[in-house]
């Protein structure tokens, strides 16, 4: 990933900063600047998520792209944050620990790097709570 592409969303990724439509009281992470429910009537403001949630569904990746090959097998999951929005993240745990409905919390990890000499990308992953 290019430096500006990552840098632009760094705060979102580091601190789970998403958005909240105060018109319809819907939370968005990943952030949306346009509320799909209210569209132009929506008033969308920044919101920091607490970082706790529940596993909705998951898979254990055995075959990955180059960038993630060293991590296999690793768990990816769709997580519903307590505020009600969903995101996709790795869950750092033993693979046989995983179950649907598992409570999870945020941790700060490396998301990847642009080769050995390139920038390192940090952000949020989850662990069992």
């Amino acid at each position: 990933m290019s430096v500006p592409r990552f840098w632009r969303e760094q705060q979102n990724r580091y601190n789970l900063i998403g958005t909240h439509c105060t018109t319809c009281n819907t939370y968005y992470y990943p952030p949306r600047i346009l509320c799909p429910k209210c569209r132009r009537e929506g008033k969308v403001v920044e919101h920091q998520f607490k970082g706790t949630g529940t596993v909705v569904t998951y898979s254990i990746i055995r075959s990955a792209s180059d960038q993630f090959n060293d991590l296999t097998p690793y768990v990816i999951a769709i997580i519903e944050l307590d505020e009600g929005t969903r995101l996709t993240s790795q869950v750092i745990c033993e693979i046989d620990e995983m179950y649907i409905g598992m409570p999870v919390k945020r941790v700060f990890r490396r998301l990847g790097e642009d080769g050995e000499s390139g920038p390192i990308f940090y952000g949020t992953k989850f662990v069992p709570a």
Binding site: P30, V56, T57, I78, T88, G123
Partner: peptide, 26 residues
């Protein structure tokens, strides 16, 4: 898929459909 918010987590296409399968089986 969504490169910025799915791809960056290391999801693969089989991984996404696997999450559908897991949900469906459940």
């Amino acid at each position: 898929a969504d490169r910025e918010w799915e791809g960056i987590a290391g999801v693969t296409f089989p991984g996404l459909y696997a999450m559908i399968a897991r949900d469906y089986m459940n």
